[in-house]
């Protein structure tokens, strides 16, 4: 059990580090959002589950926490991205295609 926990926590740490790195390296807000969301979802998710494996008494609570992280983090970053797009923050020069038209109808 402990070994599974350690492996999961290591995965989480790696993803968080990569997310932080991406936050610095990426050229525009949309790319930054995408890396940081990975850090919060998979990074935090696997860390929390790993902790649950290391202390089996906490497992149910940690699974609940992980579930809510999984529910909320993507939605919030999705909305942030949409808001940034609506506010007209420019995309980076290397962008190939902008699939979100400027004036879209919200259905």
């Amino acid at each position: 059990m402990e070994i599974i926990g350690i492996i999961l926590i290591s995965i989480g740490v790696i993803f968080s580090t990569l997310g932080a790195l991406g936050l610095i390296r990426m050229p525009d807000i949309y790319n930054r959002l995408q890396t940081s969301t990975k850090a919060t979802t998979l990074g935090a998710f696997s860390t929390i589950i790993g902790v649950g494996f290391m202390h089996p008494a906490w497992l149910i609570k940690t699974i609940l926490i992980a579930f809510f992280i999984l529910m909320t983090a993507p939605i919030s970053s999705h909305n942030l991205g949409k808001a940034a797009h609506k506010a007209g923050i420019p995309l980076t020069d290397k962008t190939q295609i902008d699939e979100c038209p400027q004036k879209e109808e919200n259905k």
């Binding site: 939605i75 999705h78 909305n79 949409k82 808001a83 919200n106 259905k107």
Partner: peptide
């Protein structure tokens, strides 16, 4: 602004 489907469901 009006919310998108993802936000609404969430």
């Amino acid at each position: 602004a009006k919310p998108s489907l993802i936000v609404r469901t969430g």
